[in-house]
Write a protein that binds this DNA or RNA. Structure first.
Lengths: 160, 160
DNA sequence: TATTGTTATACTCTATAACTATA
DNA sequence: TATAGTTATAGAGTATAACAATA
């Protein structure tokens, strides 16, 4: 049985408020490194070398946007783009050493800030929040059934 | 004692990914009602009539931005701005009946969509996520002043 | 003088569509 | 023809600074 309608409304509100938290975190980043770059570098470190299309999927944005962010990071020497030997249309992205250092710096700043704000949280709560947010992302990322959730065509049928 | 550094880094990543979820939810909203309007209307329903400055604080954004969003909503008849009898500089904001209907529609769309995606979640997990996100916002919210307010805000909204 | 709110300007993030170059 | 990626353009969301009106 799914949860109450009221719980979902509350969740929608809570998720919106995360936006403000993210802005707060982004404020402690270096000036030439916007939040989008940080996300990009993080994914490249976690998953290793990958193609534009792959990164686009992980970021959950349009490839045109990925292209801009990647260009920004490449101009600053944080990542390298080199041709895919198996597909001349593709470009493989890889973190440079400078990019790894940059990421280290970003990560340190962000986690220090979060640590300050969440100093009185029990570690188990932080862990739980991480787990649930990961599951949330999975629940949203996977189900790309366009018709069911598109504007104007919403219904309560949750069949799969 | 606080949590691991690695947990905070993970949290930063998870919070960023909420951005994609919010975009997905926003996509099912009516065309003339951006996400910012939805947040604004929700707060006005929950907290009732309030001033610009008050709303600004709750939204966690600059008042200039609030001013724009409020103007957008006022032009569409969702909220009314009338003078504060106690302070000629202030304006009091109130949901109109049309605004309440609009909010009802938005809320139904968003929660239906979330329900579809989270159909296989146990209700207790949804509740836990709501609680932790509420606490997160509280821990970040008013803490522009360093140590003083942190423990206060932590307890203030941990229950509902 | 200080505060409430508005407006002007600029920057970030995003999507759509048109384009290129390979496949 | 179809796909990978880029670029042009437009639209939300935000912040800073200059401003008006009131306290």
């Amino acid at each position: 049985m799914p949860a109450d309608r009221a719980q979902y409304r509350e969740l929608a509100r809570q998720l919106r408020s995360v936006h403000a938290v993210n802005r707060e975190i982004a404020r402690c980043l270096p000036h030439d490194c916007p939040a989008a770059s940080a996300g990009l570098l993080t994914l490249l470190r976690t998953h290793g070398e990958m193609r534009m299309s792959n990164l686009t999927e992980l970021l959950g944005i349009d490839m045109s946007v990925t292209s801009r962010h990647v260009a920004h990071a490449a101009e600053r020497g944080w990542i390298e783009r080199h041709p895919d030997p198996y597909d001349g249309r593709s470009r493989l992205l890889r973190l440079t050493e400078s990019g790894q250092e940059q990421l280290e710096e970003l990560s340190a700043r962000a986690s220090t800030m979060i640590e300050n704000r969440l100093a009185d949280w029990p570690p188990s709560d932080v862990a739980t929040l991480n787990t649930l947010l990961g599951r949330l992302r999975a629940s949203f990322g996977a189900a790309h059934t366009p018709e069911a959730t598109r504007s104007d065509t919403y219904q309560a049928t949750s069949d799969k």
